[in-house]
Nucleic acid binder design. Structure first.
Length: 358
DNA sequence: AAGACGGGGCA
DNA sequence: TGCCCAGTCTT
């Protein structure tokens, strides 16, 4: 595009954005801390999912120091159900760095932003453009989808090198416009018009510039390879009660999947094909219980794996001691601890099942 | 350069 | 069901 085309492209894009752009809670504020929170929540997560979490989060942690001084469990509880929980842990860690190193004020230099835990190239650019109105293009899925169509770019967007290419391209476009509006306009366009599977090209403000539309090949872009093969993991979920009707629960390790969250004890079953071996292994984990009664099975789907959960009820032997990271807990108290959605379903099932039998 | 990391929405 | 979503960190 020549300079004049770039300017009219931006004019048409921003004109549409000001007419049709979405009104969103984090667009009502100029507080960089709030914008930061929104950007982290929006990673790999759709707008409508984020809105209630955002409102609750800034209410509970209205300032960087409030978040910095909270416990990790409080933060996880507020994030419960949103997924990618390392985002919450990294956000709190990053906020603590800002409180200590930058006097609770988000720095405005790109290099400083990138040094903060949880802030990568996208979030740094989003903050620079939206909060500080610096001409930094925020390279995300929306931008790459829209621009791959406009310019017929067939590089694989799952490759790291491709991000650089879009960055160079968008850097030229954003110089001739209002940085904060440019990035947000492309996000709205990607969400409302230039969607992955279905497009609304007849309503698109930049249709005239779009080479893919001109050739009728919108849906062939962007090019993206690489598919993860879903593994299925089988687990026994143990519903073990004590004499007070409380359940045995355990806290997951501090690293890895669902780190630091709580669950009913889970025992991996895949290594044990034989029922008798399974029983023996479960006993080695929690002690001697009567678990002949299988009550319920449930399949939980993550993006990269599948959990096949089978519930077992049992009474535990009286003299068994609690192990590290284990706790007895009533169903009501569970609402104060962060549980992954898979185990929230288990809690719901247990409550429902209990009511039917009393 | 890949893989890990959640959960919900949608055709 | 499979793919996508305002990505980042780890290996």
């Amino acid at each position: 595009m020549d300079l004049q085309t770039i300017q009219s492209f931006n004019h048409d894009l921003l004109d549409w954005f000001h007419q049709e752009g979405r009104k969103l809670p984090w667009r009502e504020t100029s507080n960089p801390y709030y914008i930061w929170i929104s950007e982290v929540m929006l990673q790999q997560t759709q707008v409508n999912t984020v809105i209630p979490y955002y409102e609750r989060f800034i209410k509970q942690f209205p300032t960087p120091s409030a978040l910095a001084s909270a416990s990790e469990q409080e933060v996880l509880k507020c994030w419960e159900g949103l997924g990618y929980y390392s985002r919450a842990r990294h956000l709190q860690e990053g906020v603590r760095e800002v409180v200590e190193k930058y006097d609770s004020t988000l720095p405005e230099r790109k290099k400083d932003l990138l040094s903060i835990t949880g802030i990568g190239p996208y979030t740094a650019a989003a903050l620079l453009s939206i909060a500080f109105n610096e001409p930094e293009p925020a390279i995300d899925g929306n931008l790459m989808r829209v621009l791959s169509r406009v310019f017929l770019i067939d590089d694989d967007i799952s490759k790291q090198k491709t991000r650089k290419k879009f960055e160079a391209l968008a850097s030229n476009l954003i110089i001739e416009t209002v940085p904060s509006a440019f990035n947000q306009a492309l996000m709205d366009l990607g969400a409302m018009i230039c969607r992955p599977k279905t497009t609304e090209c007849t309503e698109c403000p930049i249709q005239n510039y779009c080479l893919a539309y001109k050739e009728g090949v919108q849906l062939e872009y962007p090019v993206k390879t690489g598919k993860a093969k879903l593994r299925t993991l089988n687990y026994a979920v143990l519903l073990i009660t004590d004499e007070h009707g409380r359940y045995l629960i355990e806290q997951r390790p501090e690293q890895g999947l669902l780190a630091g969250m709580w669950q009913f004890p889970m025992v991996a079953l895949d290594e044990y094909a034989e029922q008798s071996q399974r029983e023996q292994f479960i006993q080695s984990r929690v002690g001697k219980i009567d678990f002949r009664q299988q009550s319920f099975t449930y399949t939980h789907r993550f993006s990269h794996l599948i959990w096949q959960l089978s519930l077992f009820k049992g009474q535990i032997q009286e003299d068994r001691r609690l192990k590290e990271r284990e706790k007895w807990m009533s169903l009501n108290d569970m609402q104060h601890y962060p549980f992954p959605v898979s185990h929230q379903k288990v809690i719901e099932w247990v409550k429902k099942n209990r009511q039917e039998h009393t």
